[in-house]
């Protein structure tokens, strides 16, 4: 059958045509395409990786920012608490110091009051003794108006002196 007997001319031209086709594509076609496709795939892979990394970093940065914020809040709270504590402490200390000062002032006041009191007592005694002397003088002057009396008193005084001696 004609269909099953390959024609010599067609086989010849088929070889020639295929050789030309293969040569042209081998030289200028396939290397450029395969390399291009490969490098583009690499580029896409790299791009995806880069994007993933960037996303990760972004997430990380957000986390870090959140952490920093939380830290700052904590510090603020700590500081506030410290300040509060310091305030109470200072007030406490001031109170203490004031108390001490007051006690000291009180002591000093007590002391001076005591002294004053002693002074006053002394003065009072002096004044009392002066009054008493005055009164005694006046009494004595009154008593001495009568001669008999005077003599009696001198006698008694003399007696006393005698007794003492």
């Amino acid at each position: 059958m004609e269909l099953f007997t390959p024609d010599f001319g067609l086989i010849f031209w088929m070889f020639v045509a295929f050789a030309i086709l293969f040569f042209v594509l081998y030289k200028w076609g396939w290397p450029a395409i395969l390399k291009g496709v490969e490098s583009r795939a690499d580029l896409i892979d790299k791009g995806v990786e880069y994007a993933q990394n960037a996303k990760e970093q972004l997430d990380h940065a957000r986390e870090q920012a959140d952490a920093a914020l939380a830290e700052a809040r904590k510090q603020q709270a700590d500081m506030l608490r410290d300040a509060d504590r310091m305030k109470t402490q200072i007030i406490e200390e001031a109170k203490e110091a004031a108390k001490k000062e007051a006690a000291k002032v009180m002591d000093a006041a007590k002391l001076s009051i005591e002294q004053e009191r002693k002074e006053a007592e002394k003065q009072f005694r002096n004044e009392v003794s002066a009054f008493a002397l005055d009164i005694a003088t006046k009494v004595v002057k009154g008593e001495m108006a009568d001669k008999a009396q005077q003599k009696k008193l001198v006698d008694s005084l003399l007696d006393d002196m005698e007794k003492q001696n």
Partner: peptide, 29 residues
């Protein structure tokens, strides 16, 4: 017989089309 018959001619047309389409892709790259 090395005639450029209908089939040989079609062969050349196919070769030209394949070269053209593949080189178009290569040129793009």
């Amino acid at each position: 017989d090395f005639s450029i018959t209908k089939n040989v001619c079609a062969l050349f047309i196919a070769v030209i089309l394949v070269i053209w389409s593949v080189l178009a892709v290569a040129r793009w790259h």
